[in-house]
Design a protein around this nucleic acid. Sequence first.
DNA 1: CGCACCGTTGATGCTGTTCAAGTCTTGTGG
DNA 2: CCACAAGACTTGAACAGCATCAACGGTGCG
Lengths: 241, 241
Amino acid sequence: MTPRLDLRCADCGIRHRAVCARCDETELARLEEVKFYRRYEAGQKIVWAGDDLSFVASVVSGIATMAQTLEDGRVQMVGLLLPSDFIGRPGRTVTPYDITAASDVTLCCFRRAPFERLLVDMPHVAGRLLEMTLDELDAAREWMLVLGRKTARERIASLLVSVARREASFDLAPRSHDIRLDLPLTREAMSEYLGLTIETVSRQISRLGREGTIMLDGKRRIVIPDLDRLRAETGDEAVAV
Amino acid sequence: MTPRLDLRCADCGIRHRAVCARCDETELARLEEVKFYRRYEAGQKIVWAGDDLSFVASVVSGIATMAQTLEDGRVQMVGLLLPSDFIGRPGRTVTPYDITAASDVTLCCFRRAPFERLLVDMPHVAGRLLEMTLDELDAAREWMLVLGRKTARERIASLLVSVARREASFDLAPRSHDIRLDLPLTREAMSEYLGLTIETVSRQISRLGREGTIMLDGKRRIVIPDLDRLRAETGDEAVAV
DNA sequence: CGCACCGTTGATGCTGTTCAAGTCTTGTGG
DNA sequence: CCACAAGACTTGAACAGCATCAACGGTGCG
């Protein structure tokens, strides 16, 4: 399951979605020369807010979280980093967010200087990075709506739907029925993402379970029998009559 | 005050901040050929969510808002567009947000096809656009913290500080004392931005005024006698003892 | 075993919403 | 010039949703 650390780009699971998506064979060869892998265990900090980040990276496998903390301890997650997502920002060395491995994580890293040279030489990479950044911006804005206007129940539903959607986009087979989510997020991580407390998250998940909109299989595994029914709980669409 | 509609790039107020910031004289000449201006009056819709946007543009003057609406009427603003900000996204024609002129607004527009050719030919423009998008992403994430974790009072303070900061970066003169904000936002617009109701916005502004942290000069003009004191209300820093 | 961590559930209280009434300002028409 | 209406804003009272505080159950591990 976990990728070998000497993976060749051509065999890489995120080959067609990450920042390198548009590169041809020759370009990949050049990436191959400068990339290196890093592994983090679940729970490990990848970067501390304010620290220098000497590299940029793509998430190859696992899930990481990006969060901001106020000095009195309040925490808000600002991004969920799934495979193919990019970490770091060209032209700036400090990251303003804590990045933490939520599960075991493998990163494909590039030292900063070589990467910035790549950006100049290979417009494919710069173009793809722009596209990915614009996607992230859209995602952040959608999440602003969740945080600013949705109820606790709608927030939970929105999270589950967005993870399910993203997960589904990885599978080619359009699964006709049950969607099984194995989300490696503690209640605490969810609450940090949703702008709620863990108690509220727990209550709303229990309630969705009791009502049959989702099915709980242990603490972390969730089965969605009817995605449309769950989607109706997100608040995004007027309820069908 | 309002710019002439036949403005030359060299004389443009956003010349050094907008997407064209890094262009040299020759490159500006090329932009000059394809750009055109549009004006919108306060209150006018610039784009409706879901509509095709046939151009991309920079805000030259005025303030516009970007908002998302749920079908039951809940609204969340996802961006405040100030002079030099960019509207539209290369590679996609529909905008997922309503964009509205909050004051009279002038845009410097480019038809989509020529602009996308520019992006390929002029890496300066693509690079600057990436940089601006990354800045927007940071701003969106900072706002997620506001929406997810801050109290009503902290949200108001955060809004005022961020507008003051942005305003200040336009003036060269580092104003030694009173900051005067002339923010052309109704209470409703503020509430949409802050994820609150207009009543709560009104109450908190009154309260900050009563306490002397800000001074109200009519409905829309706000004077900040001590920026640090206001900043202490944003929740961002531990309160100094 | 005993501890730590994660999650659930209940009781209570606070912050911000909702509903409602009223003020101030601005613009319009007689 | 005044009467009137409409929109922006303010203020008050009651309510609701989520947070807070607290107790407890399950699971994995030294």
